[in-house]
Design a protein around this nucleic acid. Structure first.
Lengths: 369, 369
DNA sequence: AACGCGCTTGAATCGGTAG
DNA sequence: ACTACCGATTCAAGCGCGT
């Protein structure tokens, strides 16, 4: 029996298959797929409705496919599809799974238990995440991807140089800054509503596929959804197999693939140059020990004195807030650039705190200029 | 038996305890700790034994060594210490764990199984990570922290405004950019070698503690190591308890702590939002004579007019009720903050009634700032 | 044409207190 | 326990429109 075939089963290529992924995977020949990318349901467990401060309602992911009775039910579902993927993967293939804190720990544990070998966890940092509207937690600004080979001694594909050149000739790190999928890329229905609630940006998939597969390889997505994996694979000269339960999603994906235009290199670029990331909040100076809580700050004429606090706010004459707010407040102005307004004492002279920001940038963005 | 005590056990404070953390935790009174930060040994999976990053062996306590495969012992160890921490945590306390892809999925799964409720996963992005020398993977440039409360409905401390201050008036995100611990901060032995292999930067711990505890709270670290948690806690005016197996690490931590002075109370003041302010019913404004019954209130666009009544309710177009209810009603909204919605006329201009609330606070709670 | 303003939107586990 | 009510809370992008 030829490699890549099982019981006469042939590997379909460049198709979006409608069906349950565990069942459909079992029909595919074993050891026939080079790369799996999976975006399974996250098991969000949302209860109440959420409104923005402007009273508009957040359109949450409340679809039935994201509902599981318990962690146990989710775990068993996860074990099944991860095992089914393992069967169809070639010994030198690899697997990516994306998730959030709701599900990614379950996924990671189970894939380790099944014998997969974690190569990296990669953080997708969103440039434009949804804020935390109630101010009760940190803004959930990232998602986590796990990249794993078939075992501790298994080989796998990693295009080191391609990743390095994508990153201005520096090694690609495990944290990737990319925008969410919106604007013209986001699929919309005729009524203007989004076609799929969780469409992933093509740039994310392109980087995954470029990093861990070769031209001509077979890329499989068991939760194909809007078809971003297939689109990125096709654009990059790979074969794709998508499996999707909902006929409507599969149809949308097929339409995308049909009108696919050739490679547009811009979508693969890093979201922003390093300079774009170099915003240094005043709080970072405190955290980095460049200025201590309790230090006095003065305006250029030393008419006002403010004290730095541990949280990066400053206090002056009963008022508290950011360097900008308090600077504006003491001047009776609408706005103020606190970086140039406030000074600290050094060797008997007043120096603007902006000087310290340069030092902070050196510490936080070592490669910047 | 008093709350916070078990079998007469007293809570030691500001001590580094030498011993096995599970055993030592069992000696502490239950529900007595506000915050746990844990940096447990990683699961390096060498020969089915567990090693710390410095290759010192972790004693496996379990007989069923190979029953669960190579991860079994690590899982059982993890379950034990997480359960022991859960016992000593107050119902409104919270827990942080830091780890890498080697162990964090096991930790996350087990803490969910034990009933902890994940609030965020927070990514520590390293400015200066160790490069991947062999060029076979992505540079491992981050570590993952899980922040969890005691359960889905448990309260927890989150100093939203303080975090926002640190980030120059933008919500703090789940990805934190901080340098690794090096230079003068890194503890060295006389021979110049690192005192501890995985010393964490104090800035990381400071942000964790500032975010999720109050001044005076008890912060516990079951794997104290070089004592960074204790140092950050002490500097920020919290009590600390460190537990560490290795006498040499404990001794190094004590030496660090000895020369450390906590910040003064003023520097520890942290930005507080409106949530921290005393609540003033609108009726109090009427009672205090700050606004008279019969006064007209308007929305910002002056499309609606309401009349203040003697009992602190307002009436508008036949409807009557609180400033919030009527504000929501005239807008057709689910909810409304009447304090900022309704305005009164003063010198020909519309001023929000929130200004009057500030005046009422001065009268009713004079010591408030 | 370029710019500014306003509106919309995104995988979200998003209260506390008094009665 | 449950109910009622108070009242706090958002960032980056894209798009359409008006100047």
């Amino acid at each position: 029996m030829a490699v890549g075939e099982t019981g006469g089963a042939r590997l379909p290529r460049n198709k979006i298959i409608v069906g349950d992924c565990i069942e459909e995977l079992s029909r595919l020949p074993e050891a026939s797929v080079d790369l799996v990318f999976a975006d399974p349901p996250y098991n969000l467990q949302l209860n109440n409705e959420l409104f923005r401060p402007d009273n508009s309602r957040v359109d949450a992911v409340d679809d039935d496919w994201d509902k599981f009775g318990s962690f146990g039910a989710y775990d068993s579902f996860t074990r099944d599809w991860l095992a089914a993927c393992r069967r169809v993967l070639k010994p030198n293939g690899s697997l990516w799974v994306i998730g959030s804190y709701h599900n990614i720990f379950r996924v990671g544990t189970i894939l380790q238990d099944l014998g997969y070998w974690v190569l990296n966890d990669v953080i997708w940092r969103k440039t434009n995440p949804m804020p935390n509207f109630r101010g009760r937690r940190f803004t959930n600004a990232h998602e986590t991807m796990i990249w794993a080979s078939m075992g501790p001694k298994a080989k796998y594909t990693f295009n080191y140089e391609a990743m390095k050149s994508l990153n201005e000739d520096l090694q690609m790190r495990s944290d990737w800054l990319l925008p969410i999928c919106s604007g013209g890329e986001r699929l919309k229905q005729d009524d203007g509503r989004k076609t799929h609630p969780t469409q992933k940006p093509e740039a994310l998939l392109a980087r995954v596929i470029l990093a861990s597969s070769h031209v001509g390889d077979v890329v499989l997505d068991p939760f194909s959804g809007s078809g971003t994996t297939a689109v990125a694979a096709k654009r990059l000269g790979r074969s794709f197999i998508g499996i999707e339960r909902e006929e409507s999603y599969a149809e949308a994906a097929r339409a995308r693939l049909k009108s696919l235009k050739p490679l547009d290199a811009a979508s693969l670029q890093v979201a922003k140059g390093k300079r774009g990331e170099a915003r240094i909040p005043f709080g970072a100076l405190v955290e980095l020990g460049l200025i201590s809580p309790g230090t006095a700050l003065y305006d250029p004429a030393a008419r006002h004195e403010a004290k730095v606090r541990a949280d990066g706010s400053i206090a002056c004459a009963g008022a508290q807030g950011s360097i900008h707010k308090i600077g504006a407040h003491v001047q009776g102005a609408m706005a103020c650039n606190g970086w140039t307004f406030w000074h600290y004492e050094k060797n008997g002279a007043l120096k603007p705190i902006d000087d310290l920001r340069a030092a902070a940038r050196q510490k936080l963005v070592p490669h910047a200029s």
